[in-house]
Nucleic acid binder design. Structure first.
Lengths: 237, 237
DNA sequence: CCAAAAGTGTTCATATTACACCCATGT
DNA sequence: ACATGGGTGTAATATGAACACTTTTGG
C-alpha cells in the first residue's frame, strides 16, 4: 500500500500503431481487453507506467507485452486527461503514435487472455474508453506529418518501387491518385532515394527498386525547415 | 491521507507563455520560486493538477494564480516524464504552450512570495527542473507552427500594420528581414486581413491598419492543409 | 521641399501542372 | 505481337525573388 498526503491520478500510456502492407488502407493494431472495465471490447495497447520508467520506454514495453510488436518508430502524440475518461477513477493517459511496416512485423503474439489484431483503419470496431478520439487525433497527426517529413522509411519494406511509395502517400492522404510524372520529379529531387536494383520476373518493364539513403533521410528529418523537403511532399489535395 | 494499492506519480502542468510587444525579441513569462526545491530560482508557471480538473483548465488556473495572466491562446505541447526530473520524486508534467499580446496583458500580479516577470527569450536566467528543455521544445514548436498557421492573431494588438506583422514574423523566425514586396503579396493573398483604417499623426505616409478577419482566420486555422496558407507562410530562411 | 516610411510595377528565372508519349518485360 | 505497368519530354502557366520606383505624410 502506498500513502500520499494529496490524492494522485494514475498514469497510463496508450499506443496508436499504424501498419502498412501495400494495400489501399492503413491498419491499426488493437487488443481485446481481458479484464474490466470494457472487458472483451477492443482498445489500444497500453497500460500503467512504472514508477522508475521513462514514458516512452513504458509505451514500448506495454506494446511488446501485449502484442509482441517491437523495434518501431514512436513519438509522443498527446496527453488525455479528462476527469471522467476512465470509470476506474482519474486516469491520465500519455498517448504515443507509432509507424511500422506490417510485412516485417506480422506476428501478433497476444499475452494472457488478450487478443491482438490488425484492423483496417476504415473498419474499426467499437472502442473502449476515449480511444476512438485518440485514434482520430493520431490520424490527423499522420496526415499532417506526411507533408513535412518523409514517413516511408518506417512504413515500407527495405526496398520498394516508386509506384509503391506513391501508393503509400495516396493511402495516407486518402486521395484518389496524383500525377505520376510530378510525384517522381518531386521525390527524386530530395535526394533521399538510392537505386538498388530492379524488379525480377514481372510481366512488364521491371521497376527500379530504391531504398532510403539513411544519411540524407536523417538530415532531412532534422531540418524540417528544408525547403526542398516541404516542396517535395506538399501535395495538393 | 490517500492510500493506493500501487504507487502513483504526481502530475503537474507547466505553461510556456510567449509574449510579443513589437520589439525584436519575444518574451517569456517566468516566476521566481517561493518554496523548495529550487527556491529563489526562476521557473515556468505551473503546479499540481487537481483531481477533478481537466489538464488545460489546470494550466490556465495555475497561470492565473501565479501571474495574473488570463484569456489567452493555449495548446498542449508535450509531456515530460523522466523519472529523475524532479528531486521530490516521480513527477510527470504536462507542458502547455501559450501566446499572448504583451501590451494587452502587461500586468503581472505575483501571488504569495513569488515574483513573476517577462524575460526576453534570448536573455533567460538559469531555470529550475528541466524547464530549459521545455522552453527549447516550445520555441521549436513556435517556429514550426508559424509556417503553417497564422499566429499573429494571438500575438499582435487588434489593429496593426503590415510592417508590424512582418516584424513579428522576422522576430519569431529569427531572420534579418525579408523582402517587403513579397511578404505583402503573400499575406494579402490569404484573404485573412481586413482593412480598418489608417495610422494618424505619423511623420510619413500613414500605413493602412488591418485586423484579422475572424471567420477567414478560423477557417484557415482549421484547414491547415490549405495550400493558400502554406504557400503564404512558408518563408524561405 | 525634405526625410521617412508606405506601398506598387515589372522583369526574369524557376517551379508546377498537365498531357502525351516511349520503353522493357513475360506470355 | 500485345498487354501491362514503368518511365520520360516538354509546352504552357503560375509562382517567387529582386529591384527600383512612386506616394503620402509631418516638420
Amino acid at each position: 500500500m502506498y500513502t500520499y498526503k494529496y490524492p494522485r491520478p494514475s498514469v497510463t500510456v496508450d499506443v496508436v500503431v499504424f501498419g502498412y502492407d501495400g494495400g489501399r488502407d492503413l491498419k491499426l493494431l488493437l487488443i481485446q481487453r481481458g479484464g474490466e472495465p470494457f472487458k472483451g471490447q477492443w482498445a489500444l495497447p497500453g497500460g500503467f507506467v512504472d514508477m522508475d520508467e521513462d514514458l516512452e520506454a513504458s509505451a514500448l514495453r506495454e506494446l511488446e507485452e501485449e502484442t509482441g510488436v517491437r523495434d518501431l518508430f514512436v513519438e509522443q502524440l498527446f496527453t488525455f486527461g479528462a476527469p471522467d475518461r476512465d470509470p476506474r477513477g482519474r486516469v491520465i493517459s500519455v498517448a504515443y503514435f507509432a509507424l511500422v511496416n506490417l510485412t516485417a512485423h506480422p506476428a501478433v503474439a497476444a499475452s494472457d487472455a488478450e487478443q491482438a489484431e490488425w484492423y483496417p483503419l476504415h473498419e474499426l470496431p467499437e472502442l473502449a474508453f476515449d480511444h476512438a478520439r485518440i485514434i482520430e487525433m493520431a490520424t490527423n497527426r499522420l496526415r499532417a506529418k506526411v507533408r513535412y517529413q518523409p514517413i516511408g522509411f518506417e512504413l515500407l519494406p527495405e526496398e520498394f518501387t516508386l509506384a509503391e511509395l506513391q501508393a503509400l502517400y495516396e493511402t495516407v492522404l486518402g486521395v484518389p491518385e496524383f500525377n505520376k510524372r510530378n510525384f517522381r520529379t518531386r521525390i527524386m529531387k530530395t535526394g533521399m532515394l538510392e537505386e538498388v536494383g530492379r524488379q525480377k520476373n514481372v510481366a512488364h518493364r521491371p521497376a527500379v527498386l530504391y531504398r532510403f539513403n539513411e544519411d540524407t533521410y536523417q538530415q532531412l528529418m532534422e531540418q524540417r525547415d528544408s525547403a526542398v523537403l516541404r516542396r517535395a511532399l506538399d501535395f495538393e489535395i
